[in-house]
């Protein structure tokens, strides 16, 4: 447990009209990039706010970096980028960043040094223009996002929590964010981010937790999650159009449960009793010219759709935001 950056044990949060988070438990290993995935209204932001001790859970315990999350001084070791970005519009960028750093207990001189480093690094300070001395509302939206990102990292936090970090980012900033996340991991920091964009999660995360309607659907290392959901999916390409014998094999319900037919390319899902090796033998026996026959893993996106879609139907909930 001590090597957990974050451990949630049975946390529950009820609001007047609904349960936002129900009995959620999860562990985030130190040094991991962890994805908190779920549709809108799943309880991601509520969970993050409870981790940050902005709101208290009705039940359960939260341990952050080995101490209870109510421990004094703990917030100074966390960095948080909220989903809805915003800054004091009338404030000078450098003063604003110094303010944010001082709120995290960084002394003014260290803060100034780091601010300059970051401004250089994210191209907010150049030979002809130093955006650090401009007011926030003179900056473009993309630049404001960079400033906010700097504010999240100025105090060199050990655990960084990013709530929907990619929403509203232009492609260049999104790339900068990914690069930074990878670099933070390299330096041994733990990064937790919530997102509903599975592509990013699949590429960046070591581990994920999928929640929907306040319930945990699944969690674990990305590779483990994917192999657990391996449904013996098969990608099949044929040389030329399928003969009637081949079509008959593909339509055998004893073998195949679901088929995505693209004429010469098929994505097949084996039925419960079907065996991929048996299928291959039958296809060749029917005279098919097989170009590609591959057992494929489902994408996180597919798993997400399958599991969350199912959970939503099972509970019959309306899924309010």
């Amino acid at each position: 447990m001590t090597d957990s950056a974050l451990a949630l044990r049975g946390i529950t949060k009820r609001f007047a009209e609904h349960v936002a988070v129900r009995e959620l438990s999860l562990d985030v290993p130190r040094g991991a990039v962890y994805g908190l995935l779920g549709p809108n209204g799943a309880g991601k932001t509520t969970t993050i706010r409870m981790i940050l001790n902005v709101i208290a859970p009705d039940a359960g315990t939260i341990t952050v970096l080995g101490t209870p999350n109510t421990a004094p001084g703990l917030l100074d070791r966390l960095g948080y980028l909220p989903e809805e970005r915003g800054l004091y519009k009338k404030m000078q960028v450098r003063r604003l960043l110094r303010f944010l750093a001082e709120l995290k207990g960084v002394d003014a001189r260290t803060a100034d040094r780091r601010i300059d480093e970051w401004l250089d690094r994210l191209a907010l300070r150049g030979p002809e223009k130093d955006w650090g001395s401009a007011k926030v509302d003179e900056l473009s939206r993309g630049m404001q996002q960079k400033v906010q990102f700097i504010g999240t990292l100025l105090h060199d936090p050990e655990l960084i929590i990013l709530d929907e970090p990619f929403s509203g980012l232009d492609p260049i900033n999104a790339q900068a964010l990914k690069d930074t996340v990878v670099e933070l991991k390299r330096r041994g920091k733990t990064v937790i981010f919530s997102t509903h964009l599975m592509d990013n999660a699949e590429r960046l995360c070591d581990s994920v937790c999928i929640i929907a309607h306040g319930d945990k659907v699944l969690d674990g290392a990305v590779a483990a999650v994917k192999s657990a959901h391996q449904r013996r999916n098969v990608a099949l390409s044929l040389e030329g159009a399928p003969s009637s014998e081949v079509t008959a094999v593909l339509q055998d319900p004893a073998l195949i449960w679901k088929m995505d037919d693209n004429n010469r390319y098929f994505e097949l899902e084996m039925s419960a009793s079907g065996d991929p090796q048996h299928l291959l033998r039958r296809l060749i026996g029917a005279g098919a010219q097989v170009q590609r026959f591959e057992l494929i893993q489902p994408s996180l996106h597919q798993i997400f759709l399958d599991r969350v879609g199912a959970a939503g139907v099972e509970e019959g909930m309306s899924g309010h935001g």
């Binding site: 948080y80 909220p82 809805e84 915003g86 004091y88 709120l103 999240t152």
Partner: peptide, 15 residues
């Protein structure tokens, strides 16, 4: 202002 610009979210994660 802090509420509408959502600066409040950042600040309450510090104090």
């Amino acid at each position: 202002e802090e509420k509408t610009t959502r600066v409040a979210e950042v600040i309450v994660s510090s104090v």
